[in-house]
Write a protein that binds this DNA or RNA. Structure first.
Lengths: 337, 337
DNA sequence: CTGTTAGCGCATTCAT
DNA sequence: ATGAATGCGCTAACAG
């Protein structure tokens, strides 16, 4: 209930010197007698003095806190990005507030409010599958708090973004399936609200076109990324009069779920039906058969996003740049194809 | 660089009323004319006014921020606890600062400092495998900031703790192995610094004893949880003149790694050698063969830890209680045994 | 119901 | 090299 905090006042009183001198010593200001400085620092150490960042934040209008908002924490994808981002932020002296929205737009809006009142200096975001309105994010821009998007970006906002070449990744994945002799390739696509869904879908379509394989709308299923929906759609695909001989899934969780379902149907992977995922999650290497997947440079994504954000933070609002960094994916061929 | 913030002053000026009235309206105080209240709230909404929590924190000496420190984010275990904790904290109006220490004591100490200066109201912690000195955590107690440990607890600190019955979980796991006819059961144990290691080891030993199976020290390998060490030790076990017919691993990542290594040796699981893990990670269900594991109620752990913490926060320091909540584990029998 | 005032802990002028 | 004074945005105690 009652927190006890050591303040500059306490130290000043104990040492019988002025608060300003203590403050100066603590902030590394040069104009302090070396002996008094040592005294102050020693006492601060002894008493576990920690600056009250709320006070400093109030004065400087800086919190040294960066916010990160991710849509979910279920696969290894976002946690890994968070780790990398946190590491990079720490190097620059920033703490992070992490929030995950559980794929809920409402939670995302709520989290954004919390971030705002926490006086964060900047924000990196990957939106939920439900997010169609961006007012809760545009507020940050208006207030002079820079935003950087990663992975799931907002097309209409002109801010820095870190993405991977989704189109290219999808194209390569499908190209690979075709090269292994597959002809009826289904695509378990993501919701249209996400740009990554559209880009991966386009990569899929163009790869088929370039190989003179007709697009069969029945083989393209757009779903909302709910884990429990995968079963329905994969089963549907398998029960088609002319079932697919391969599935390119929007992400690894979907692909992994698909593998499990296909196995219960007694089909052989990849002989009867091949699978490719997207992202290179930890679990993709564990599943049997191991999953061929379009690996994303997750650590790099987190790192670059933070770097770009800090650049923005250090720039004046009028000098903000809105560059988009596109990173390359890497097709990892395993036993599911 | 320059953040623009709407303040109570701005609203007061625009509406030509006093700051206190604005403040009252914004805090839901009753003594405000309904019409002026509406005016104020509308303008606040329109201008995206957000309270400056730094200022409030400075006055109330409360931040409404809870800190969570976890040792790693590699398996699904800690992320899932974080999700549950965050959910529970949000219900009570708390934001969370999450830090993961990458199993490094030094990082943990650093993170603790950050937490301290962020004026958190309370902290839930699971320590790193390296943590032997607890001064950086005791500071919180001294400052009147409550701590709750979960999973990897500090024995010597008298604070609330949330743990699972590690001894019982281990005992049941080994008992199960014995029932399937295994006689030479190895244990891939954790470092002695962690109480969970000791408890799981004791459960293992007692289960053997109770079944009149002699303890073979050669079959007990204590390691530091580094992912790359598992291979060395499992290979060592397999090359023993009298190799084990089962392995009980301290956690699922180790068990999963073991399965992969054993498969490369051409041994059959569970016929030649059975495996049991601990925790019930997401990946345990995916690996082939699927892993028998002592599942922990992760969501419950996170939830209970936050609940206990908030109770402490709302208590005066002198009324702090140090209850330990022990949750039950659940042996999930799959194909690795 | 509304306005005035003090002060939270600290950095930062301005004095000395 | 040090001290005193100001104010960051806000709440709460005090006056009307």
């Amino acid at each position: 209930m009652k927190k006890h905090q050591i303040t500059i006042f306490d130290i000043a009183k104990e040492l019988n010197i002025s608060k300003s001198t203590v403050s100066r010593a603590l902030t590394g200001h040069p104009n302090v007698n070396e002996k008094t400085r040592k005294q102050i620092l020693d006492l601060a150490e002894k008493w576990d003095y920690q600056k009250n960042m709320s006070a400093i934040s109030l004065i400087t209008n800086k919190s040294n806190i960066i916010g990160i908002m991710v849509p979910e924490f279920l696969s290894s994808y976002f946690p890994n990005i968070v780790i990398a981002a946190q590491k990079e932020a720490a190097l620059a002296g920033y703490t992070m507030i992490i929030s995950q929205s559980n794929e809920s737009y409402e939670t995302e809006v709520l989290n954004a409010k919390v971030m705002l009142s926490s006086q964060i200096d900047g924000l990196i975001v990957s939106i939920t599958k439900e997010t169609l309105n961006y007012d809760h994010l545009k507020v940050f821009q208006r207030k002079g708090i820079p935003i950087v998007f990663f992975n799931r970006v907002c097309e209409e906002m002109i801010v820095p973004k870190v993405i991977v070449d989704d189109y290219d990744g999808a194209y390569k994945a499908v190209q690979h399936l075709i090269q292994t002799g597959k002809k009826r390739i289904a695509h378990l696509a993501g919701p249209n609200s996400l740009s990554i869904s559209k880009k991966r879908l386009n990569g899929y379509i163009d790869a088929l076109k370039d190989n003179n394989i007709p697009i069969d709308e029945d083989l393209i299923i757009s779903y909302d990324l709910s884990p429990n929906k995968v079963k329905i759609y994969v089963t549907h695909l398998l029960n088609l009069p002319n079932p697919p001989d391969a599935i390119f899934a929007i992400n690894d969780p979907a692909a992994i779920e698909a593998i499990q379902i296909i196995k219960t149907h007694g089909l052989k992977i990849p002989e009867d039906i091949a699978i490719v995922g997207f992202s290179g999650d930890y679990a993709s290497a564990l599943i049997e058969p191991s999953l061929t997947t379009v690996a994303q440079p997750v650590s790099e994504i987190g790192k670059v996003a933070i770097k770009m954000l800090i650049e923005q933070i250090n720039r004046n609002v009028e000098d903000w740049k809105a560059v988009t960094t596109m990173l390359k994916t890497n097709l990892i061929i395993r036993n599911s194809t």
